[in-house]
Write a protein that binds this DNA or RNA. Structure first.
Lengths: 217, 217
DNA sequence: GTTTTTGTTATTCAATTGTATAATAACTTG
DNA sequence: CAAGTTATTATACAATTGAATAACAAAAAC
């Protein structure tokens, strides 16, 4: 069927792909490897093999391995933010229900997973080495908190409640911390919590912090 | 003053130390290096140099580098637990004040620091590689949560309130998550929060979750 | 004081890593 | 269809790594 037409001297057959395609494939390969077996397993050779290419392509499409890792961190955090904040855009739902869905998305797969905790920890641990990682971290963290803050403001406003800006900021920071902490516990101890236990806890406690009822939708 | 009596053939002078001393020195050296510049910088040679010995000693006092890293993680988590839970033992103080002090200890240096976040993330990222790391993580996590749960129970009980065991467990899990999340944010964004802002937030929000007043001691 | 023990140094080794360079071929352009 | 572009492969290289081994000496045992 798919017999390889032996080229002149047994050189591996290949297809030219668009740079964006190859970059995306290399990024995905790096994320898979780090998520599966940690940062150490993501060598240039392993990444290239996972992406179905040879080692040299990394240097061709990225300035260095460090550059690839930074790009992978950026892509991963963007994807996770989009996944967990997707319910916030559903304008057909009331804000309190959207908030409950955002919490649920954060505390269920695929956002909450052992793989993602490993990935996240691997990148955080690289902060002292690569300045690009810190920049991306700060940007994505503030972006998520701001969008969560907006959703909280909407929720409170819909109930006729108004809070000062600084108090709103503290509320968002605390709720963000609670979500992060539960996400971490669920991902690091995958067997420690039953079913939607963490989701119920998250919705319930954030409801208490905000003075609203979020669960039981 | 301290001229070295040149040994027979320019071999480095040394002093024999007790195994526990050397083990502790190597562990501390590893923790310093990982905390300063991440896991990658903690090579066997760098650890030995930091500890003031030569490379071969690691294999003499530990079965492997992996064994040293596991021991370092264990020692570090124990030290942090002791630091942050020390106020819980002060029987001269009422439980609500002890709880407030535990929260404060968790959200101020030396427990909350960029170095410690880097350290913690580095170890978590090693979980897929070394099974010993996961064991230590689960043990220290559950130990901290249990002791926090006991302190919460004491606090509520002192106010004449009793909660079912399962609800108490959820309360402890949520409070632990909130503390972890704030600790993480403070350590990862050292410039993002002013003074005791995080401490006030932690005490205030956990007070809300428990229905007690913890701040302003 | 002599012997024994073992903590410690010094050196070597095989494996792996990220990167660099040259050769090649797939696709594009005209 | 011919020439040019560049994505891709193949190979090499210098540096680093964790580990292994042998030589040595400091302290203990006798």
């Amino acid at each position: 069927m798919t017999d390889q037409p032996p080229p002149s001297k047994s050189r591996r057959a290949f297809v030219r792909e668009a740079p964006e395609t190859r970059r995306a494939a290399l990024i995905q390969a790096a994320l898979e490897l780090i998520g599966e077996a940690g940062y150490r397993s993501a060598t240039t050779r392993a990444i290239a093999e996972r992406a179905g290419v040879t080692l040299g392509l990394i240097r061709h499409h990225f300035h260095s391995k460090e550059d690839l890792i930074s790009a992978a961190y950026d892509a991963h955090m963007s994807a996770m933010s989009d996944l967990s904040l997707a319910p916030a855009e559903r304008k057909d739902l009331p804000p309190d229900q959207r908030l409950a869905l955002v919490i649920e998305a954060n505390l269920t797969p695929p956002v909450m997973s052992e793989r993602n905790v490993t990935l996240w920890a691997s990148f955080i641990a690289q902060i002292p080495n690569e300045p690009g990682i810190r920049t991306t971290h700060d940007r994505t963290y503030l972006s998520f908190r701001d969008r969560l803050e907006a959703l909280i403001a909407e929720t409170l406003s819909a109930q006729g409640r108004a809070v000062p800006a600084d108090e709103l900021r503290r509320l968002a920071t605390s709720c963000n911390a609670l979500i992060d902490g539960l996400w971490l516990e669920g991902g690091a101890c995958p067997t420690g919590f039953a079913g939607d236990d963490l989701v119920a806890m998250g919705q319930d406690r954030i409801g208490v912090l905000l003075g609203v009822t979020l669960n039981r939708f």
